[in-house]
Design a protein around this nucleic acid. Sequence first.
DNA 1: ACCTGAACACCGTTCAAGT
DNA 2: ACCTGAACACCGTTCAAGT
Lengths: 210, 210
Amino acid sequence: MARTPLTRDEVLSVAGDLVKQHGPEALSMRKLAAELGTAVTSIYWHVGNRESLLDALVQRTVADLGTIRPRGSGPQERVVSIARTLRRQLRAHPHLVAMVHERGLTEHMFLPVQQALVHEAHAAKLRGADAAEAVRAVLFQVVGHVLVERNRERAPVQRPGEEELWAGAKAVAAEDDRALARALAAPVDSERLFDTSVHALVKSLLGPAT
Amino acid sequence: MARTPLTRDEVLSVAGDLVKQHGPEALSMRKLAAELGTAVTSIYWHVGNRESLLDALVQRTVADLGTIRPRGSGPQERVVSIARTLRRQLRAHPHLVAMVHERGLTEHMFLPVQQALVHEAHAAKLRGADAAEAVRAVLFQVVGHVLVERNRERAPVQRPGEEELWAGAKAVAAEDDRALARALAAPVDSERLFDTSVHALVKSLLGPAT
DNA sequence: ACCTGAACACCGTTCAAGT
DNA sequence: ACCTGAACACCGTTCAAGT
């Protein structure tokens, strides 16, 4: 029954799989030990405790984050492309990204993106504090949107859902605009909404001064 | 030692206090029982179990959410005022708001805000699907920003922090823009950033078509 | 250096028994 | 109708003891 010697890497890798699948709250030291075929206490020798195990997983995630290659001709298009890529990356491993966030390593994780955004802001003739604020506005926008999306997806059936809220005859709110009521009753197309919002923000921030 | 009869309201109120102060993860049935001066099992008679206790707290929060009075002359100003108010409300009881979110009641909680935004979109001459998308874009923007803010505040010391990241001589990223490097090294003024972003978004969405 | 089981102090929940 | 303690099945962590 005796198994091959346990390694720190093996612990992290199996723990990472469990977290990716079911989230950090589903990771118990006892379950992990069972999965590894060792005594619970062996894990402690290799990784200290549960908290530092999770910390180590987070470090890995940050290190693994790829770089960003902006596409498009003008700065505005390229910023939108950066935003789209970032959204996709963040949505790929939601549990791990959430953990990175909780541990305050978001800034670190986003350094490459921020550099790419700085480059585009400069290309759009923004300088100094204006450029910094544009970069941060886009970053907040993207991360915020992803967090809202995540929350909506994780959430169970909305009660009452958008449909009931806006469909009924009592939907006075829609102010006699049937098309509006219909649009608000339909489920959110969050990818489309993401594009619209980013475009709108970028247009204001990087567009010609008015 | 025998205390006055336990009521469901009392359980909820004490539980609510504990959650407001230390978050839901700090609420254990045993601690709550101790606080109430009863046996752990008495709580179960009144509220079922831990999960439905938290559900009940969430219901209360949603019901307690006040209405919104937009200020300002034009639709753009008024939307910004709605956004500011919403941000303030969401930041007042972060733990409870997070729980509302997790339970998928966000939509319900935001009905009044959404109605107010619909009104302003109409005032800005938006109709149908365009109005709906503008309303949702603003809502996502505000909620997203608040979530990012919350995460940043909850997070421990950033390592490396923005300062080190952008200050060093190796900060090639800043592309010879000293003012930019300085701005990115300074801590985020997230209220100002919020205003900038919302203004930018609103200007694009509600402003004159270009 | 690495692994182990026993033990401690916590959980949420169920249940039969009390009044 | 309301409350109770005992018991069950879980936790994370420590520690002395093994090899």
